[in-house]
Design a protein around this nucleic acid. Structure first.
Lengths: 222, 222
DNA sequence: GTCTATATCAGGATAGAC
DNA sequence: GTCTATCCTGATATAGAC
C-alpha cells in the first residue's frame, strides 16, 4: 500500500533494492499516529508536534518521510478510502436482497466500531467540502454508487423489495452507520454510557439493521 | 437571545438603559459571519480576520464584542442549539405516530436545507468530542430524548407502530437528515449535481420519510 | 464606542550536525 | 538515514489613538 506513493526527495539508502524495513515501520507508525490526531483535532487543529509525540518520533522525521503536513494528511485519507468502499461487494444482482443489505449494514457498523478514527478523518474531510477527496467522490464514488444503485433498482423492478430511492438509500445507510463513529459522543451522552462496548454495539447494529431492512420491505421476521 | 450573555468588560455607553441598537446590529452581523466561517473551516481552521472580513468589520471589533475566539464560538453554538431541539415538539403521546414522525422528519430536513451552516458547526463540535457542548448533551439532550423515547415506546406498546429501539431511531433520524447538510458535497458528488435546489430537496425528504416510516411499520401508502 | 498598529506566540518547515 | 536547533509566517489578542 505504501508502495504506490511518489518517493520523497531523499535518496534511497544503500543498494538498489526497495525501502528499508525501518522506513516502512516508521511510515506505518507515523500514519497510525496521524490518523488518531487528525481524527480528534481535524486537519487544522492537528499539529505536527502532537503527531510526532503520538508516534514517539522527533518532529523532523515526519517532514523527512512525508514532506509536509498536507502530504501526510493525503496519505492518511488515501489509505482509508479503499477499505471504505469494499463492503459494497455484497450488493450483487444475483444475491438475496435481504441478506446482501444486512451484510452491508453489518459491515459498515463494524467499521464504525473498529475504525472509528478513520471514519472521523473522512467525516471531517467531507464536512469541510472535501478539498482533497472531492475529485475522487465525483468520479470513483459516483460511478460505484451508480452501479450499485442499478442493482437495487433491479431488485425493486423484480418485486424483490419495496420501492425506495436507491441512491438516497445509500446516503441513509452511510449516515446511520457512521454516526456511531463520528458522533460517538452524542450517542454516549444520550445513552448515558461512558464507553461503547460490544453489547452496545450489537444493540446498535440490530436497531439499524431492523429499521432499514423493514424500510426496504425486507422485514427480518417475515 | 443575546440578552442572556454575560456582559463584556466594556462599560455601557450612556444612560442606564440596555444595549444600543448599533451593538445589537453588530453582534448579529458578527454571529452570522462567524457561523458561516466556522461551518466551512471548523473551529481551528477559522480565523478572526476571515470572520471580520465576512462581517465587513475591523478585526478588533470582534474582540471588543466577544472577548475571544472561543467566546464567539460558544455564542454561535448556543444560538443554534435551542432551535435544534424544537421539532421534537411534534412527538407527543396523543399525536398520530405516522403524522408526528413525518412532521419531525420533514422539519429536520428543512433545517438541513435552510440552516446548513448551523448544522455543520454543530457536527464539527460533535466530531471533535463536544468540548463545549458535552455537558449540555449529557444533561438536557439526554433528558429530552428520554422523554421522547418514552412516547415512542408507548406507541409501540399500544400496537400503533412496529417494534423499534426508540433511542436508536432518533440517532438514525438525526443522521439521515443532517447528512444532507453536513456531507452535502458527498451527496452532490454522487448525484452529479452542483447545487441542491428545491427539487433535489423534496426528493431527498420524500426518500428519507418513506424509508423511516416504513421502517417503523407506518407505510404511507397503507 | 471604534479602529490602527503592534506585541506575542504557536506551529510548519528546514539547515546542518551527527 | 536521523535528529537538534532555529527560522519565519501567520494568527490571537491588546494598547492606545481617535
Amino acid at each position: 500500500m505504501t508502495e504506490g506513493r511518489a518517493a520523497p526527495t531523499a535518496p534511497s539508502s544503500g543498494g538498489g533494492f526497495g525501502k528499508t524495513s525501518i522506513r516502512q515501520a516508521n511510515e506505518e507508525l507515523i500514519l497510525a499516529a496521524a490518523e488518531r490526531v487528525f481524527a480528534r483535532a481535524g486537519y487544522s487543529g492537528a499539529t505536527m508536534a502532537e503527531i510526532a509525540q503520538e508516534a514517539a518520533l522527533p518532529k523532523a522525521n515526519l517532514h523527512y518521510y512525508f514532506g509536509s503536513k498536507l502530504e501526510l494528511y493525503r496519505e492518511v485519507l488515501a489509505r482509508t478510502l479503499k477499505d471504505w468502499l469494499v463492503p459494497t461487494d455484497f450488493i450483487r444482482p444475483e444475491a438475496d436482497p435481504r441478506a446482501a443489505l444486512a451484510a452491508y449494514i453489518d459491515a459498515k457498523m463494524r467499521m464504525s466500531a473498529e475504525r472509528a478514527d478513520a471514519s472521523r478523518v473522512f467525516a471531517n474531510e467531507l464536512l469541510h467540502g472535501a478539498p482533497v477527496l472531492g475529485d475522487l467522490l465525483r468520479t470513483e464514488l459516483r460511478a460505484l454508487v451508480e452501479r450499485k444503485a442499478e442493482v437495487i433498482d433491479g431488485w425493486i423492478a423484480a418485486g424483490r423489495m419495496a420501492r425506495v430511492d436507491s441512491k438516497h438509500l445509500f446516503f441513509t445507510i452511510w449516515a446511520a452507520t457512521q454516526t456511531y463513529a463520528d458522533f460517538d459522543v452524542q450517542v454516549r451522552a444520550v445513552l448515558g454510557i461512558t464507553a461503547t462496548g460490544p453489547a452496545a454495539q450489537s444493540r446498535a447494529s440490530a436497531a439499524v439493521r431492523t429499521l432499514i431492512l423493514r424500510g426496504c420491505g425486507l422485514a427480518e421476521s417475515e
